[in-house]
Simulated scan of single mutants.
Amino acid sequence: MKRFLLFLLLGPAVGFATFEIREVLSGKVIGGFPGFIMGLPFAYWFGLIPSLIMWGEDWFLEDKMGLWPKVLTSAITGYIVSIGMLTIWSSVAIPLSQILTFGIVGASQGLVCSWLSGIKPKRKNDVGRISEA
């Protein structure tokens, strides 16, 4: 359940923050702060499907590999899915360089959510064993 909520709620927010940083670094600021606030609902709307795909991939690989290989595969999946969604939803021609840099949005989303979902809480017994040694 934690994994699902992370990908569903935090994923689009991380992707949107990465998108905004990408836009600012490229010199494109649309609407300033009001544009940022108005863009957040759209980020959740358009980031929902990629988040669910990354969640499914992360959930499937949970017990099949370690944390860091799983985080890397989630970042790669996010990169590919975000590029795919951009090319499907876009009605105008976009230069290849912009398409490839847009993949960073999904990669960061997959990386952060997969990493946070893979962190396991420490058990009381583990803490006691460390202090006894």
Rank of each mutant, 00 (worst) to 15 (best):
K122A: 14
T87C: 05
L9V: 14
K124N: 11
M65S: 13
S114G: 15
L5Q: 10
G106L: 06
Q98N: 12
L40G: 09
I53A: 02
P95I: 02
P12E: 03
V92E: 07
L40M: 12
V105L: 10
I30R: 04
D58Q: 14
L67R: 15
G128V: 02
D63Q: 15
F102P: 00
I53G: 01
I30G: 05
G27R: 14
Q98G: 10
F7K: 01
S82A: 11
I94Q: 04
A107G: 03
L8T: 12
W55P: 00
S26L: 15
P69T: 02
M85Q: 05
K2F: 12
G31T: 04
M38G: 10
W115Y: 14
F16P: 00
I88Q: 04
I80P: 02
W115L: 15
W68I: 15
I30E: 13
A13H: 01
L100Q: 04
A17K: 00
F46I: 03
V105W: 05
Q98I: 05
G56D: 05
L100G: 05
F102T: 01
G39H: 07
L10I: 13
P34G: 11
E62C: 08
D126E: 15
F36L: 05
M65E: 15
G47S: 04
D63S: 12
I83S: 03
L100A: 10
L100K: 05
S114C: 14
S90I: 08
E132M: 07
W59I: 07
M1K: 08
M85W: 10
M54Y: 07
R22E: 02
I30A: 13
Q109D: 01
E20I: 13
K120R: 14
A43K: 09
P41A: 14
G47A: 04
I99P: 00
L9H: 07
R22Y: 10
S26G: 14
L52V: 07
L10N: 12
V29K: 06
W59Q: 12
L116H: 11
M85E: 03
K28S: 12
T87F: 02
S97N: 13
E62Y: 13
A13I: 02
E62P: 08
S91Q: 15
K122Q: 15
V127A: 12
G39Q: 04
V127G: 07
L52C: 02
L52P: 04
G39I: 08
R22A: 06
M54F: 03
V127P: 03
I30S: 11
W59S: 14
K64C: 09
L72S: 06
D58C: 11
Y79F: 04
G118L: 11
V105Q: 10
S108D: 07
T77D: 03
